[in-house]
Amino acid sequence: MEMRLEVNGTAHRLDLPERTLLVHALRDQLRLTGTHIGCDTSQCGACTVHLDGVAVKSCTMLAVQAEGRRITTIEGLAKDGALHPMQLAFHIHHGLQCGYCTPGMIMAGLDIVRRHPRPDLGTIRAELEGNLCRCTGYHNIIRAIAAGAEAMAAAATGERPGEGQGQ
């Protein structure tokens, strides 16, 4: 069936079977391969994207269900070649080992900041329940999300991020 998807601000018209999952439309049709398939059973969160700014698992959603909604993938975060503050925080704090879970962690991290603008470490741990890191590198992921949140708050208020944020 024909469906229209808005991904990272660009409108696409695709002709796909009804049963096509959103993650497959993104990866196989639009070649946005930053969204990963980890467990394929809605456990691991590697496929996390934003739907109207809210984190969802794109392996547990049909592409056609995203019609009329704004989809944002990891590729949609950087602006004019500059990393998003959350991406930069993962880079600075080495919030990754093999990197496979990273796109999902960053998209989930942004959803945490949406709900908790300055989350403490306990909140981040609890809110990352839907994202698994098989390298078990959670400590730096959690630090990166906390630092990313600080950087986003600072950017929003025009402050410079504190020296202690690992800049």
């Binding site: 739907l51 984190a55 969802v56 698992k57 989930a108 329940e129 839907g130």
Partner: peptide, 8 residues
């Protein structure tokens, strides 16, 4: 579930 599941 988890945040992503709760969002759907």
């Amino acid at each position: 579930g988890d945040p992503q599941v709760r969002n759907r």
